[in-house]
Nucleic acid binder design. Structure first.
Lengths: 172, 172
DNA sequence: GGGCGCATGTAATGAGTTACATGATTGA
DNA sequence: TCAATCATGTAACTCATTACATGCGCCC
């Protein structure tokens, strides 16, 4: 996921501090990106240096001070061009799970069927957990819907592969 | 893509030298992995040190010598366990193209439709190119089929999104 | 009073890529 | 003779992660 674009886009909706961004990503966008806390902080500093966002330190009582970020005009135009670029391009996807599929025939069909059954089960679990993530306004919900679409497509594909494996099994 | 598993699996079918592996990956598996030449060489050396594969230097005329690799028993059992692990697990996929979708509403529907149209076109092109990649025996062809399945699912998803955008447009 | 949540960061590490280096052969 | 292909590798770099460090507030 284009991490800078994501951060810019979120800050554009409303100004936020680092921890807040991290929490949002962790709780509401976990299915769509694996950006980590320190990466978020790092990118925020970098974009601040670049002049895309400005920090404003804020303190509540005696708690640790927050650095609240908001877009500058430069940040807005960076967002605009990153967005257009991202939307127009395709972003190739490589499935690391395919390394296994490529050599499926190294195992007996009984065993490979069982293993793929485990994979399928894990996919279903992911799909269920996705249903529990909170809904969002604007286009943000599209990323969840996309994951759902993708997971369903993956399950259908797995079923196709396992169905073919069944044909190679001796009929009982 | 689990790069070591891929290399082991290919070497398991037949012994190969580094350049041969790189060419195979570049020409026949480009849609499924983006492993680079130097990465392949690096991993081959690492696996040789580990005792998973053995080198045998081979010279043809005065050409640069080749290092032909083949699996050792240790390599075979490493392959077996990597394979089982890979097949049973799910490998989460994050779409960097979703960073754009998330903020689709930052643009006028006319423009976002046009940009997604470009994305769709690029996907179609990729699909066409995939049709040209040579077919392979065993389960290897599954990785191509999987890409095809995925690309079609992506195009369908894009169409759904653009169809929704149309509803927001004023009717002419 | 002990652990979790808030809030930010640094340092070390890692996986993989880019760019470069080398040198012979083959074909236009 | 000049570029492309064959064949292998090294060095520098990028991006992101893990693990660690800090310190206050809140709740049980």
């Amino acid at each position: 996921m284009d991490r800078e674009l994501l951060l810019l886009g979120l800050l554009r909706r409303e100004e936020m501090h680092g921890y807040q961004l991290y929490e949002f990503i962790e709780h509401d966008l976990a299915s769509c990106t694996d950006m980590k806390k320190s990466t978020a902080y790092y990118l925020l500093n970098k974009m601040a240096e670049r002049g895309w966002i400005t920090e404003e330190t804020e303190q509540e009582g005696n708690r640790p001070p927050r650095r609240v970020y908001s877009l500058t005009p430069d940040g807005e135009s960076a967002f605009q061009s990153l967005l257009r670029e991202n939307l127009a391009e395709t972003h190739p996807v490589y499935f690391s799970g395919d390394a296994g599929l490529a050599f499926l025939d190294a195992l007996e069909p009984e065993e490979s069927t069982a293993l793929l059954e485990q994979r399928r089960h894990a996919l279903e679990r992911t799909l269920e957990r996705l249903g529990e993530t909170p809904a969002h306004g604007g286009s943000l919900h599209l990323v969840i819907e996309h994951q759902v679409h993708h997971l369903k497509s993956e399950i259908a594909w797995l079923d196709e592969v396992t169905a073919r494996l069944q044909h190679t099994l001796p009929e009982e």
